[in-house]
């Protein structure tokens, strides 16, 4: 990354379903200093929720394992989020990324996780090895809100 790194954090937590909420609130709290717009925040939270849910539902299907979430803030309102597991891995990444494809149709999984991550971020990279875990990296640049801040200062 050529942009200057301004802030970063790493969280490790077990693949328990209640941590889906924790993960998206943690990201939301960490990036709040950038003052993201409501729609941007909501989209980032949704993308994080999808990635973490994938770890819980697919990577560690029959066990509880460790999820690592790294968030970095770079100059230019650029947010980097990497969510990694040491689970079963994905054999066929293009197939897994196909909208509506799911390996768990009986559990009412819509098969839209990757499609949502893709739509709600600027860039999505998936690296995985069967048996060797998966890492999902997402980049999203926030809109600059100088205009909005300017309005606010006028009001004050």
């Amino acid at each position: 990354m050529k942009e200057k790194l301004l802030n970063e954090m790493t969280l490790r937590f077990p693949s328990l379903s209640e941590n889906e909420r924790f993960a998206r609130l943690a990201v939301s709290g960490f990036i709040s200093s950038l003052d993201p717009a409501l729609d941007e925040l909501s989209e980032i939270k949704t993308a994080v929720s999808e990635a973490v849910t994938n770890c819980i539902v697919h990577a560690y299907r029959d066990r509880v394992g460790e999820i690592t979430m790294q968030v970095r803030i770079y100059e230019g309102q650029l947010i980097y989020i990497r969510i990694k597991d040491k689970g079963c891995g994905i054999e066929d990444i293009p197939l897994a990324r196909t909208p509506l494809y799911t390996t768990a149709p009986d559990e009412e999984r819509a098969g839209l996780g990757f499609a949502i991550m893709e739509s709600f971020t600027d860039r999505l990279r998936v690296s995985s090895r069967a048996g060797g875990g998966t890492a999902v990296t997402m980049l999203r640049t926030l809109r600059t809100r100088k205009a909005a801040n300017g309005d606010k200062s006028k009001e004050g």
Partner: peptide
């Protein structure tokens, strides 16, 4: 207040 693809699965179901 928040929904991800699990909510979509719920609606489709």
């Amino acid at each position: 207040s928040f929904m991800d693809s699990s909510g979509i699965g719920l609606i489709i179901g």
